[in-house]
Design a protein around this nucleic acid. Structure first.
Lengths: 205, 205
DNA sequence: GTCGGCATCATCCAAAAGGTTGAGATTCAG
DNA sequence: CTGAATCTCAACCTTTTGGATGATGCCGAC
């Protein structure tokens, strides 16, 4: 039985590659989308069994938002994330948004095909080298930062000093320091550079 | 007249995509390599007109080292860098290593084909949106950091405090501070987070 | 040999960052 | 309504960072 697939990637070359690799007797590629918006429209019309979606989609909404929107369709396609990156926060975010699986782009074509079939059957499918990491991430969840704290953290990571952050957010430096103190406590670090490094490593920002 | 090409990319899917997109009446794909080492061996035997090479090649040597090695072959193929990333230092590094051009992966297939033909003729070919940036980069060259300074910068970017850096490098904190002062002057910044951010943005680290 | 670049270290001072504690205001769920 | 979380701010203090200046030794270029 053939599984129908919609490809979502902002790189034409990757779409062509996926199409060439996937379009076999067990998988049928219904269409391609370059953006998340396009993917949602196409999926609503084509009703693919599975949507194969990149996380980074250039302009417009990202893969996680796309996943959430796709899963809200009726009938909802299974969403398989296929990406180059393996940042923890993003994997967990994608799964929270309803993704059926997560594959890295450097896997062999057969693994992608297997993942598609598994996703179509309603299974979860994680690239083997990611599975342990995800479980690890769920045991050691990154503390939840509030929106404001994330905003401060992002500004910090661009090299902004407390004064700069205060000016950007229209608050006093005391407030910024307060947020930063909370961030440090939650991330268990004691310097902005460590906080930045940790945040970048885990995909928090 | 057809131009012969060797593909170098660590992602099977991208290689398939490139092959599907490029193998036309004017371009002939001679072979594919997944690593830089493989690319050099293959190029020495197949004598392609052009090598289309990703910058990030997973394990092993990177695209810039591969470029340099390829350009040392006789006859030397033209090397066209095709990558997702657009960091300044890498573009300039690739060109220094002898690359004939630099393309971003999100361009249309026709642009890649045009780039291949131009490279085969000995022209330089830069993605249009990169050209101005590269010229800009050559007018405002990033100051050359010494090896030691780069080492310190890299440690800084992992969140290490001066004391940590000093311990790692077996020098005193005073020395670390001295290096950092030089780094700041050269990069024209006044805080480690800004230095880290700039270094990451420009691909310095 | 001399000069310049580099790495090493030191001292002194000022500024920024970080830690602690506490507190007012708002919002939102139970 | 009450309590918890969040965002805001303040005062105080310690540590870290950054800036300025200068000194030593090494090495390679001229």
């Amino acid at each position: 039985m053939t599984t129908t697939v919609l490809l979502v990637d902002d790189h034409p070359v990757v779409r062509s590659g996926l199409r060439a690799v996937l379009d076999t007797d067990t998988v049928h590629v219904l269409g391609e989308a370059a953006t998340g918006e396009e993917a949602i429209t196409l999926a609503a019309h084509l009703h693919p069994d599975v949507v194969l979606c990149d996380l980074r989609l250039g302009a417009g909404i990202d893969g996680i938002q796309t996943t959430a929107a796709l899963r809200a369709l009726i009938p909802a396609p299974a969403v398989l994330i296929l990406t180059t990156f393996d940042r923890d926060a993003e994997i967990l975010g994608a799964i929270e948004a309803g993704a059926a699986g997560y594959l890295l782009k450097d896997v062999a074509p057969e693994v992608i095909i297997e993942g598609i079939h598994r996703a179509a059957k309603g299974d979860m499918f994680l690239a083997p080298d990611l599975a342990s990491r995800v479980l690890q991430g769920m045991r050691n969840p990154l503390p939840r930062l509030t929106d404001r704290e994330l905003e401060v953290l992002r500004l910090m990571s661009t090299g902004a000093a407390n004064r700069d952050i205060a000016r950007t957010l229209f608050v006093t430096e005391a407030t910024v320091k307060s947020h930063i103190a909370h961030i440090f406590t939650k991330l268990d670090v004691d310097s902005r550079s460590r906080a930045i490094h940790l945040a970048q490593e885990t995909g928090l920002i």
